[in-house]
Amino acid sequence: MNLKFVKEKCIGCHLCELACSTTRLDIFNPKEANLIITYQYQDDDLKVKAELCNLCGKCIKVCPEGAISLEANNYLILNKALCNGCGICKSACPQGVIFMKDNFPQICNMCKGKPQCVKSCLHQALILK
């Protein structure tokens, strides 16, 4: 199961980002979310796109300490005891959805199989597939 973005259904409310930061960090802050929705006027048109973790595994590969792993249920976990906070995973993430917080990378863990971003999307622009 993976996160999928259905572009034509998105309305740009950003509730998904808010659900993410609330669940992960106990704060309402769309800038601290593991997904980035762009829904903005550019060149007289609406630009719509989403950056989501697609489980490509680059962060796992580049981590020098082997601190990131893929769980059998198909989500990533970070072993904080092993992580040295180098941030290489952040730089390597092709989607740019890893960010550093208190010296540790914040990596989408799919809310351990029950992603709150999906739950918050009433219009089903974010789904698990």
Partner: peptide, 15 residues
């Protein structure tokens, strides 16, 4: 631009 975020008590419960 606000980068700090907005904190309340028990945000998960609110969500």
């Amino acid at each position: 631009k606000g980068t700090k975020g907005f904190k309340i008590d028990r945000p998960k419960e609110f969500l």
